[in-house]
Design a binder for these strands. Structure first.
Lengths: 329, 329
DNA sequence: ATTTATTATGTTAGCGCTTACATAATTGAT
DNA sequence: ATCAATTATGTAAGCGCTAACATAATAAAT
């Protein structure tokens, strides 16, 4: 499912969806047992059952909703004959909610259904009710420290500190490997040529006349990219990688700009890249930077995964279709 | 929070509440960053950003909502200038959604915000994103096997097999202790007198002229209760316990009825009990069975926790207030 | 004792989503 | 080629909830 891939970012949506699934399931169970109540009524009715007459506000606090919600639900339940509303003799503002005999009787019949729900849900909640436990911890964490504050703090740190693009240094060599290995392993496999280039960038990239750049944030290496020398006027853009946690911040674009600048500085005429149609966000970025999609992959492509071939030229003109190109797919 | 105490039964409500908290928090973050978008727009916009133009139905499937929801949201986003709607040239029914330049630009600025959200939420999700992991497992479990079926299966088993009430047997001795220890430890503490009676029911309950009953379901011991001899016509109801998973099924009432029947059989005139005002559901059950709340606790009460004193008499008449009673609290 | 806050509740409008229906375009069967 | 099924979408009504307001009763301050 797509939402899972967004992890923390679409968390609310997933919780909502799961909540709806549970409500719907329990409603169906109630219906097919002829229980005569709905899942959303449960917290109010059960609370009354356990605690006896309760005011609207007390109830709202107990079940974590607004007094409006309780008031409206109470009206509905009164209409259904399950609830009783009467004025509190001690305080004219308050009104006491309580179960009617019919309401109490409905609940009493429900015991086995609840047990069945409990037992039936055990599987879904994981061993030792892991989801329940995690949910509880999460609620506690949010109560203890407001989420908004934490997020804004992180945001302030992230935006105040600037991302810098720096050229290759030997002490950063391992990051060139690690950052690229991460996405290669995630989407494809590390091919032998990858291994050679990534393990020995000095001999494979720099000495032939190429360049490597790193993106740094607060001293942390969060991205890299390489410009490979093919011939005096032909270069290849390759080994672009940004740490997953920092994707979407425009860091890839910064690295790309640095590589293109270096390509110009060295008097290149054509800059090409090979990529995969599965890496859509990256492809869009290349397009926006001026790369033009070619109708067919390059002859003698370096990599198994390559099914996309793009070219950038200083003039901005699209490179002419190559011999034998033009066929679809 | 009350809902936590309902564990599996109010699970949907808690998920919904948590979902709303996350939506609200992220919305506030977006507002204070001047992002110009809302949290609920995120899945649609992000999907378009990653995948390019998409039809309404594709989108609905990807983000797990109805096509109506997508259609309506799309209208809103078009009005906000973030989305573009155009007819699919290949299929007149379809319509392609895509980001406007402004929409794409809004998202690109958001990179750091998303990273901040990710990092800020780490705490709330527990070590190794435990909540996220548990959520994923739960979704999988529900996909694999429909919850309704599981619950109804359990329900069928529970209702077909009858609960039986049986008298004391030595092989059940340990359950008398375990079932009572559970609620004593949960709400109060195990007092010395509890320990003596529960550990040695033969000498402390049966030999003096009392009785003990167990509730059995499918060979499993799920509840117990004791009738204690005080004098020829005075008995005490005590040590009533039902396994938490089977509460609310009327098992307490079955045990109580058995004990009252035995009380009659032995020619008792007065049956009293001591309980705590914290055990509201139990108190209601006693009332429904004919016990009458006394205005003050018994002189020389056996237990620290006792602040409720109730009496049952065969005639059903309320026992007369005792000497010194009648004062409030 | 009078005024001012606070508290408890009901009411209205609105949001996000669903269900149910309507409509149009496309595909498939004969 | 024709007509029925399927598919893609939009729209209306409704549900559950919230926010914002209105109102009445109570508590607190002077």
């Amino acid at each position: 499912m797509y939402l899972s891939s967004l992890t923390e970012l679409a968390f609310g949506s997933r919780l909502k969806a799961l909540s709806d699934r549970f409500y719907a399931a329990v409603d169906e169970v109630y219906r097919s047992c002829g229980a005569g109540i709905e899942s959303r009524w449960f917290p109010v009715m059960r609370f009354l059952w356990e605690h006896g007459p309760t005011t609207v506000t007390e109830m709202a606090e107990a079940i974590g909703q607004t007094h409006s919600a309780v008031s409206q639900l109470a009206n509905k339940l009164v209409r259904a004959g399950l609830l009783l509303r009467r004025d509190d003799p001690a305080d004219g503002r308050r009104c006491l909610l309580s179960l009617t005999d019919q309401g109490a009787k409905s609940l009493e019949k429900l015991g086995p259904v609840w047990v069945a729900i409990r037992q039936g849900m055990q599987d879904s909640l994981g061993p030792q009710s892991r989801l329940l436990q995690a949910l509880h911890d999460c609620e506690q964490a949010l109560d203890a420290q407001p989420l908004v504050g934490k997020i804004l703090d992180r945001h302030a740190v992230l935006t105040q500190s600037r991302v810098e693009i720096v050229p290759f240094e030997p002490r950063l060599r391992e990051y060139f490997y690690e950052l690229n290995a991460a996405w290669l392993k995630k989407y494809f496999v590390i091919e032998p040529l990858d291994e050679q280039v990534l393990r020995d960038p000095e001999h494979r990239v720099l000495e032939p006349g190429g360049a490597i750049f790193f993106a740094m944030l607060e001293g942390e290496v969060i991205g890299t990219c390489a410009l490979l020398y093919e011939s005096a006027d032909l270069f290849e853009l390759s080994k672009m990688a940004v740490n997953e946690a920092f994707q979407g911040m425009g860091i890839g674009r910064r690295l790309l700009d640095a590589a293109i600048a270096e390509f110009h500085r060295r008097g290149g005429q054509t800059l090409f890249l090979e990529s995969s149609s599965r890496l859509t966000p990256a492809l869009h970025m290349y397009e926006r930077a001026g790369f033009v999609l070619q109708p067919a992959v390059r002859d003698g492509s370096h990599y198994q995964r390559a099914d996309v071939y793009m070219i950038y030229t200083p003039t901005g003109a699209a490179a002419p279709p190559r011999k034998g190109a033009g066929r679809k797919n």
